[in-house]
Structure formats: C-alpha cells, structure tokens
Design a binder for these strands. Structure first.
Lengths: 233, 233
DNA sequence: TGTACATCAGTGAACGCGCGTTCACTGATGTAC
DNA sequence: TGTACATCAGTGAACGCGCGTTCACTGATGTAC
C-alpha cells in the first residue's frame, strides 16, 4: 500500500472526470423524474457510453444512488454553510433565518434531490455509513449559530418544556459531542428545530398546502419565526 | 339517470367486494414494498385473477394508486377522529397529545401508506380532487380541539409571532371556513402545528434520528409538548 | 313467468418496452525491469 | 530508454425478467317486454 501520488495519472484524472459526468447526468435525470425512475441504462446513454461501461465506475445502481445521496447531503450542507458565512457573525437571528431560507430555496430548486434525502426512503435501500458525516453538515450549521448565540448571551430561555431523564441524558451526550457550551435543554431545542424546518419545507414542497396557503414564501418565513422562538433566538 | 337502488344487485355487491379485495391486496403489497414498486400484475396474481381483469375495476395503475391514497387519508382521518373521541372533551391538552400519538402510531404501523401520502410525491402522479376532503379530516380534528379550547377559555396567547398582511388575510379566510371563533393569529398557529407534527413523525420514520435520538417515543412526546405550546394549549 | 337481448366479469394471448447485470472481447494506458 | 506484461475502460451481445395495457373472446348475470 503506497500513498496516492500527489499528481494523479492521466488515467486517474479521466476516471475522476467521467465519474463526475455520470453523477452529473444522473442528477439531471433525477431533476426530471424521481429516484425510483432513475435508470443506469438511460444515464449511460446520455453520457454516451454503453450501459455495461457504467459498471467500471459504480458496482450497481444502488451504489450510484448512494453517491447521489452523499452529494445531495453535501450540497445541502454547503448551501447552509455558505448562507451562514455571508452573515454578520453577531446577528444570530438573521443567520438562522438566512440559513433556513437558503435550505428551502435549494429544496425548491432541486426537489428530487431533496426528496432523495428527505422524502420517503427508496424501498430496499439502506443508507450506508458514508452518508453520516455529510448528513450532519447542515444541522451543525444551526448548532453553530445557537452556540454563538449562547456565547454572546443572546440565547433566551423561551417556554419551558420538561425533558425526561432519558432524553436529558441523550441530549447531554449529544451536547458533549457537538456543543459543549449548551445545556441539555438547549441542545434538545436545536435538535427539535431541524425536523421543524424540514417539515415546513417538505409540507409545502410536497403539495400539502395547496389551496390552504397562498403565499408560500411568506408562510415559510412565519414558520421560521416560530421555530426561532422555539429555539430561543 | 335513476337513483341507485337501496338494495344493490348481487352483481354490484360482488363488484364492491372485489374492488375492496383488490385494494386490500394492493395495500398489503404496499406494506412490504413501496408505492413505486406496486405492480398491477402482482396484485392481480395475489387476488387470483388475470392481470387484465383488474382493468374492470381500475382504469389504470394510477387510478388504483389514487384509491389507495384516498383510503390512506381516510384511515389517517379515522385514526385522528377515533383518538379524539376517546378523550374527555374538556381536557384539550390531552386530546391534542392523544391525537398526535395516534397519528404517529399509525404511521409507524403503516409506513408505506404513510409515505404514500406524506412522503415524496410519486413522480408523474398528480393528486386528483377526490383527495381533498379525506385529506382534511385529520387536520380538522386538531382544529376542532383548538376551537373547543378557545370556547372554554383554555387557549393561551403564547409567544407572539407577527403575521404579515397577506398571511393575516389568508388566515382570516381560512378561519371563516373552518374555525369562525378563532382569530387569524390562532388559525395560523394551528396550521403551523400540522407540518410540525408531520415533520416530527416523518423525521423519525424516515430514519433521520438514527444515532441521534435513542428513545424515539419519548422524543416525540417532547416534540408534541413543544408543538402544544406553539399552538397555545 | 318466460324469453331475447344487453351488460358485464374474467380469460388468455399478445404487444412493446426498458430494466439491471454478466461476460468474453479489444485496444489503449500505465508499470517494472 | 525500450520492451514485456499487467491493468483498465469501454464494447456489444445476451440473459432473464416483469411491467402496463389492449383486444377479441366466452359465459354468466341482469333487464325489458
């Protein structure tokens, strides 16, 4: 086993490029259909190779799907990080709102990629461990905002909702890992914010507010504000 | 055009039974796979008829799917209504919690039917108008609880989150239709509760709390409590 | 009440399709000496 | 620096599959007179 050379061989470089091209094409297909319809053969056709050639890059359709899921998680994480990075550090409320809106924008622009990650699981598909780290990026941005808020004393108590002993221990453990300056109670509040944001985005995106809410943008902002108070910002 | 006879003919009765049997079998298939995998031919096989015979009952695969969606909405609505009906009227908090838990139970017991309704939309499938009324049953139960709370003076103000003019008008119109005794602000809070519950159920069900939350039941109760304060109960 | 006709449920064969995956192969690129 | 060999990318044919839907048909059930 030797270290990988700093300069990739021509072959390795081409390989990386073609791998990307396959994923990009698959993502385009995803954009127009859904994950269930994604076909290796169709992707291969569009890339301009014969279907069996794809197997030089992905061992199976599932492996390609996994790669797309990882990419989607990373895209979501990147969007959240970039949105946060563009804000003044001290304005924690604004940061939270900006990140929330950016996530929703991305979901609306990439509905099938969003659904791939946050919609119903593809039947028979088990998420491999590669997804764990990318999946945490976006939620960690929210955690970071709350940690900053805590540091500068901008985290309010909000309505108290009691945590049972089990959950408190769970939140404490989680806090040790990702947010040492937060109390279990505060950790629980951030964790609860994540499905709340996800619910707000998905409900609209999946069409459940049809004929109920007219101005979906304004409504999302309203929900975000509610979530903000939930968290204590 | 004549009125349908009160006593159905034998043929009509058999037809209704077989329609039910097809749906029941399809639902069983759904239980083990997902909507995307649902095959008319496989259902026909299990019912014991030839695949083309199903077309006497459903004009297409999509129509069968629609029927399943309507049934799922009705099942969800029925679960919510039954849960609520089992509670003492005046204990509005308990009613809300009981309904929330019952919905989650149903979702866990029938994940694919739940996903059919609340997961990512099946690609290319457009929900027809038949789903509108069944889809409203469960949320209307929540609305009913909040209306009762309002009547007996148990609805609190909670944290104030401002509603823009557009949303306020939207909420007012909605209130006129379904909850005349509630203010636009209160209407908005109930509407916001629905995606919040849905988010809490889905996030867990779709596996996003894996390695994050240990005791999912307790966590859901915590989230429900948070939602309760959001609504003002 | 009986008969002639219309409606309906279910059959079985067929159409046309696209899918994931395997396999033996060719020719080009990379590596070791 | 040149050569022999190993690795790799891509081809094209094939396997075996199940799918949704259509169609002409048979025989049973229902309806009108």
């Amino acid at each position: 086993v030797t270290d990988p050379p700093v300069a990739l061989t021509a072959r390795a470089r081409v390989r990386a490029e073609i791998t990307e091209e396959i994923k990009r094409t698959a993502r385009e297909h995803l954009r127009e259909k859904g994950a269930a319809e994604l076909s290796l053969r169709a992707v291969a056709r569009d890339v301009g190779m014969v279907s069996s050639a794809v197997y030089r890059y992905f061992a199976s359709r599932d492996e390609l799907l996994t790669a797309l899921i990882v990419d989607a998680y990373n895209a979501i994480g990147g969007v959240a990080e970039a949105a946060d990075a563009g804000c003044r550090r001290s304005d924690v409320k604004h940061r939270f709102r900006t990140v929330g809106r950016a996530l929703r924008r991305w979901a609306i622009d990439n509905p099938h990629e969003y659904a791939l990650v946050f919609g119903s699981p593809v039947p028979g598909y088990a998420a491999p461990t590669d997804t764990i780290v990318p999946a945490q990026r976006a939620p960690l941005v929210l955690v970071g905002i709350v940690r900053d808020a805590r540091r500068v004393g901008k985290l309010e108590a909000g309505e108290h909702v009691p945590l049972g002993a089990g959950l408190r221990a769970n939140a404490a453990r989680l806090g040790d890992e990702i947010a040492p300056e937060l109390s279990p109670d505060e950790v629980a509040r951030v964790v609860a914010a994540w499905p709340a944001i996800f619910g707000a985005i998905s409900f609209d995106l999946f069409g459940h507010f049809h004929n109920v809410i007219d101005d979906k943008d304004a409504w999302f902002d309203y929900e975000l504000d509610r979530i903000l108070t939930l968290v204590g910002l």
